[in-house]
Simulated scan of single mutants.
Amino acid sequence: MPDLHASRRPEIVKLGGSLVDHPRLPELLDALARRGTPLVLVAGGGPLADAVRDLQPRLSLSDTACHRMAILAMEQTAHAFADLAPGLVLADTLAAIAAAHAQGRAALWLPARMALAAPDLPESWELTSDSLAAWLTAETGAARLTLVKSIPATGAAPAGWAAAGLVDPLFPAFASRTTARTEVTTAEALLAGLNGSLAA
């Protein structure tokens, strides 16, 4: 296993699937790419995961099959984001994340290889890309997890966010596995911060 702690600890930024309709998405992705290391981006499934939800009752699909399909939806969204921001490096393992950071570049996680092999991830709709981002935070020993949502957070901690429906019900348990600073922000707020740091 590569030593992701050898230099600066990674920072996970989870981009909600609803952001695919955000008019400033290309600008945000470009700013994240220019920020580079130690970022690891996690893409939500967005409308592709919604399509899996719609298909489940029509075909009487199991939760196991839909869990795998939803993770592949995240992977497809990641490919779309990489197409919009070529400066991002697609990475499907801890070694690939470390290699991207060694080049000074931000990694964009392809979750299928790691997540589908993980026995501690429930095959249920209660597990969403938010919990997967928290799981990756623990796996990488990241220092920070930022969830980028289309609306501001209500409540001040994971339990409150889950109660408000902002994150899935499993998120507080996965977030508790890590000492990372965990926060929720909007695309506008994150972009303002990135532009300010890049201009400094």
Rank of each mutant, 00 (worst) to 15 (best):
T179P: 08
L72M: 09
L147W: 04
A192M: 01
H22T: 03
A98K: 09
Q56L: 10
A162F: 08
T178S: 14
G87Y: 01
L191N: 03
P10E: 04
L28T: 12
L29Q: 10
F171W: 05
A106S: 10
L170V: 13
G196I: 01
E11K: 02
L198R: 09
A33P: 13
H22Y: 06
E75G: 03
A115G: 02
G165A: 11
E139H: 12
R181Q: 05
E11P: 00
S62D: 14
V20A: 05
M1A: 14
I71S: 04
V89W: 00
A138T: 15
W109L: 06
P152I: 09
A33F: 08
L84W: 01
A163I: 10
S60M: 12
G17I: 09
A187V: 05
S60L: 15
T146A: 07
L41D: 00
T182H: 03
R24I: 00
R58V: 15
P119G: 13
A78D: 00
G193Y: 00
S150I: 02
A70D: 04
A138L: 13
R8H: 09
L32V: 04
P152S: 04
D92S: 14
L198C: 08
P158G: 11
P122H: 14
L39E: 14
V20R: 13
D92M: 01
A65G: 02
P119C: 13
M114Y: 00
T37Y: 10
R105K: 15
G17M: 12
A115F: 03
P172W: 03
L88V: 05
S129T: 15
A33W: 11
G193E: 12
T128D: 03
A200E: 09
A115V: 14
A31G: 08
L29R: 12
F174D: 03
A189Q: 08
A43P: 07
D92H: 07
R105E: 10
S150V: 07
D130E: 09
P47E: 13
T179V: 01
L29G: 07
V52P: 06
G104N: 08
V40S: 13
L194T: 01
P26Q: 04
A91P: 01
R144L: 08
A180M: 01
P169L: 09
S18G: 14
V89N: 00
A98Y: 04
A95W: 01
L55Q: 13
P86E: 01
A143S: 15
R177Q: 06
D92I: 00
L136S: 10
A153H: 13
L4S: 12
P2C: 11
T128A: 05
R58S: 15
M69L: 15
L147D: 06
A95I: 01
D30P: 00
A192G: 10
